[in-house]
């Protein structure tokens, strides 16, 4: 396989891994303030306690892989999104320390403060991921030297903002289904209602986002002409979305979670598919687009990196599976909990 395509696909896999895995723990964070009792908040936090750090490593590795395989994309995107990414960093920092610090004091005001920080940070991070994806979809003012030529205001157009809100809604839905699986009793009953609410909001925003994409970005579907089988993913995506309410209704939350996982994976796939072979589209001149060829590292590096990935990914998958297996089942609070 063409090494550049291989790396584009692998980046897609890492991004899907991140969106699916950190998606639910960001979702738990978004929903955190909707439970009021301290014990229930602890259950929410502990449901992701052993997992969130590993989930976030998918993002770190995605970033590292982008730096290594497509340094120009990394440089252009990170310097172009300067302030949004700085805020994204603060959001990720506060998410991490909120969980770590909250349990260290009994004082209700202390805990409340970290609860608020946890939710705000999780929501902001999800929103900014969506804004970044939206901006990459519609293209950025990229000049001949591959550098971003706009200001931060150029990044806050209506389409990226819509995708930002859509990302928050998607993760909230994903997180509520996850929480339903991890909780029991009265708390679980309330979360059952959340699943319906978050699904409703998700559905409305999904329809709006799809329409906005088709209207403002007719080019998003050009790749389907060359690769018609990709329509299968679109169909699967719709089926997965339709299966979420069905599975909730018939009381099979496991299927609902698999369906929301498939939905996020399909949406991420379609995002990459719509872009290909571009990675960042220039709104100034298509000649300035950053593609998987002109923005990539040398074939030698991509080849070395392929070996690193082939050696490393089985380990990554086995750690991930092992951790999810060890911490399976309902979340209970014990002496080692947050």
């Amino acid at each position: 396989m063409d090494l550049n395509i291989f790396w584009f696909v692998l980046m897609g896999v890492l991004l899907i891994g991140y969106a699916v895995l950190d998606g639910f723990d960001l979702g738990v964070g978004i929903l955190h303030l909707f439970v009021k009792k301290d014990e229930e908040r602890r259950i929410l936090m502990n449901s992701i306690g052993p997992l969130w750090d590993g989930n976030e490593v998918w993002l770190v590795t995605f970033g590292g892989a982008m730096f290594a395989a497509f340094p120009h994309v990394y440089a252009t995107a990170f310097s172009g999104f300067y302030l949004p990414f700085i805020f994204l960093l603060f959001a990720l920092i506060f998410r991490a320390v909120s969980m770590e610090f909250r349990s260290k004091q009994e004082n209700p005001r202390w805990r409340k403060a970290w609860d608020v920080s946890f939710t705000v940070a999780s929501t902001l991070a999800s929103f900014l991921f969506g804004v970044a994806v939206g901006n990459v979809m519609i293209g950025l003012p990229i000049g001949a030297d591959m550098n971003f030529q706009g200001t931060v205001l150029d990044l806050l157009g209506p389409y990226p903002l819509l995708i930002g809100v859509f990302a928050v809604a998607t993760f909230a839905m994903h997180g509520s289904i996850y929480l339903y699986l991890k909780t029991e009793g009265d708390l679980q009953k309330r979360i059952h209602r959340w699943m319906w609410t978050t699904f409703g909001i998700f559905l409305v925003l999904y329809i709006f986002s799809t329409m906005a994409t088709l209207v403002s970005l007719p080019s998003a579907v050009t790749n389907f002409r060359d690769v018609p089988w990709a329509w299968v993913v679109v169909v699967l995506n719709v089926l997965a979305i339709a299966n979420i309410p069905r599975a909730i209704y018939v009381g099979r939350p496991g299927y609902a979670f698999i369906s929301s996982t498939a939905t996020i994976a399909a949406l991420t796939f379609l995002f990459g598919f719509a872009l290909f072979p571009n990675m960042i589209v220039s709104s100034i001149d298509p000649a300035y687009n950053l593609t998987i060829y002109n923005a990539a590292s040398s074939q030698k590096t991509l080849g070395i990196m392929r070996w690193i990935a082939i050696l490393g990914m089985p380990f990554v998958l086995s750690y991930t599976i092992a951790i999810y297996w060890i911490f399976r089942g309902k979340t209970t609070l014990g002496k080692f909990s947050y």
Binding site: G64, F67, A68, A69, S297, G312
Partner: peptide, 14 residues
Amino acid sequence: GDVFGSPLAAEGIF
């Protein structure tokens, strides 16, 4: 990036 990126990615993966 071509040089420095690989150790950084290896750090993430390994």
